[in-house]
Amino acid sequence: MNIKKSGIFALALATTLTLTAVAQDASQDMKKAGAETKSATKDAAHGITKGTKKAYHKTAEGTEKAYDKTAEGTKKAYHKTTDGTKKAADTVTGK
């Protein structure tokens, strides 16, 4: 009978140790999954930040270029209008 009790005790001990090891593995897997999720979130956030900054700078650059071109065109139109007005005035006065 002692052998039978010892066998049952050994079986119970082995089962307990196995279940404990499985529980630890599950806990470690959850921690690892959490760390990987955190890392992936950080990587995504850094990518979004980089893209947003790039878009901001490109927009500012494009706006500045458009402003410069508009100012250049306005000056050119002003000078052409002035020249045309002078020519018309000269024609009317007979110069």
Rank of each mutant, 00 (worst) to 15 (best):
K65Y: 06
G47C: 02
T91S: 10
Y78P: 01
K86Y: 03
K86M: 10
K95L: 07
E64R: 14
K53H: 07
D68F: 11
A55D: 12
A89G: 10
T91K: 15
K80A: 11
Q28D: 06
Q28M: 10
G94Q: 15
M30H: 05
G84D: 14
K50S: 02
T37C: 01
E72K: 09
A35S: 14
K80Y: 08
S27V: 09
A88N: 08
N2S: 07
K32Y: 14
T41Y: 07
T93I: 09
T49F: 14
A77L: 14
I3C: 00
A10C: 03
E64S: 03
A35G: 03
Y67I: 11
K31Q: 15
K53F: 15
Y56P: 01
D29F: 05
T93Y: 11
E36S: 00
T52M: 09
T15M: 04
K32E: 12
A45I: 10
A66R: 04
D43Y: 02
T82L: 13
T81K: 07
G7Y: 02
V92I: 15
Q24W: 13
T41R: 08
E64Q: 00
T16K: 02
T82P: 01
A26W: 07
K38L: 06
N2K: 00
A33F: 04
K50Q: 12
A21N: 14
D83L: 06
K95P: 02
D83G: 02
A33E: 07
G47A: 03
Y56V: 08
T74L: 03
T85D: 11
K32M: 04
M1F: 11
A40V: 01
K69R: 03
D43M: 07
L11E: 05
